[in-house]
Amino acid sequence: MKKIINSPENLVPEMCEGIVKANPSLEFLPKYKVIKRKDLNPDKVALISGGGSGHEPAHAGFVGYGMLDAAVCGDVFASPSSVQVYNAIKAVKSTKGTLLIVKNYSGDCMNFDAAKEDAKDDGIDVESVYVNDDIAVKDSLYTIGRRGVAGTVFVHKTAGAAAEDGKSLAEVKAAAEKAIANVRSIGFALTSCTVPAKGTPTFSVGEGDIEYGVGIHGEPGIARQPLQSSDALAEKMTAALLADLKISSDTEIAVMVNGFGGSPLQELYLFYNSVTKFLPDYLRIHKVYIGNYMTSIDMAGASLTFFKLDAELKKYLDAETKTAAFK
C-alpha cells in the first residue's frame, strides 16, 4: 500500500504540524498532541473533543470559533491517553468550566473519564457527553452501546454555538445532549482501510461485496452484503434512519453524506441524489453537508446522517463558525 508518508511513527505529529501551519489561528502542543485555538475566550465554556487519529478532518478541523477549543489526537484509531486529555483540559481552562465531547468507545470513555476525574481533583469544573449516533450497533444494557460516528460533528457544532452564546456549563451540556438525542447515522464500506503502521488492509472484502453497518476504524460491519446500487443502499439507509428517529410526520432535518476517505465526491453527490428519491414529502431539508467529515483513513464508502431539528438546534446549526473543515 502506497502512502504519502515519511515514517509511520511520525505520522500523527507531522500531520498535526501541517494542520496548524495551514491554519494560523491554531496552535499545536506536541508533548500531548493537542491542537488548540490561539484566541481562547476564557469566559465561555471550553469544549474539548478528540480520539484516535485517522478520522481527519475530525477532530482538529473543527477547532475554532463556534465549535471546539481543543482536539486531542491519539495514535491512528487509538484513544489519546488520560494524561493527554488532562493536559488539554488544563491548556484551555475557562472560568465557566469544560465540556468533553467523547465518541462512545471503550478506550475513549475510559481515558476521557480518568482525565475528567483528575481535573476535578484539581478543582476544574468538567462535564462530559458521549456521542452514540451509529444505529448499526445494537444498544442494550449488556453491551457498551452504540458508537459515535459522523453525527459527532453536529454535536460539536451545537455545543460550540451554545458556548459562544455565553451559556453555562449545564446549559451547554444540555444542548449537546439534545443534539445527541436527535442525530443518527449508518454507514457502509466498499473497501477496508489500511492503517499505516500495519501496511495491509484491516479486513478483506471481495470485489462483489460490501460491509454494511460499518464503523470508522476498519472494524467489520454488522453484515457482509453483495454489492448493490446507490439507490438500493440509499433506500435502505434512509428508511432505517427515519425509523430510528421516529420521524413520521412534518419534520425538519439536516443531512450529512460523509465520505470515509476513499470515495470521490462525485459518488457522494450521486449518493445524495439517491437519498432524495426516498425522502417522504413531509420531511423538510434545512441544510445538506456533503464531503469528508469523519473519515476512516482511506476506506471507500460513506455514511448517512440525519439530524432532527427544532428551533433551538436550528439556531445553533446556523450560528457563525470559523473552522478549517466546517462552514
Binding site: S79, S106, M110
Partner: peptide
C-alpha cells in the same frame, strides 16, 4: 503504560 499505551490498552 497508562500514559503511553494507546486506546483502551492504556487504562486497562
Amino acid at each position: 503504560i497508562a500514559e503511553y499505551c494507546g486506546g483502551a490498552s492504556g487504562p486497562i
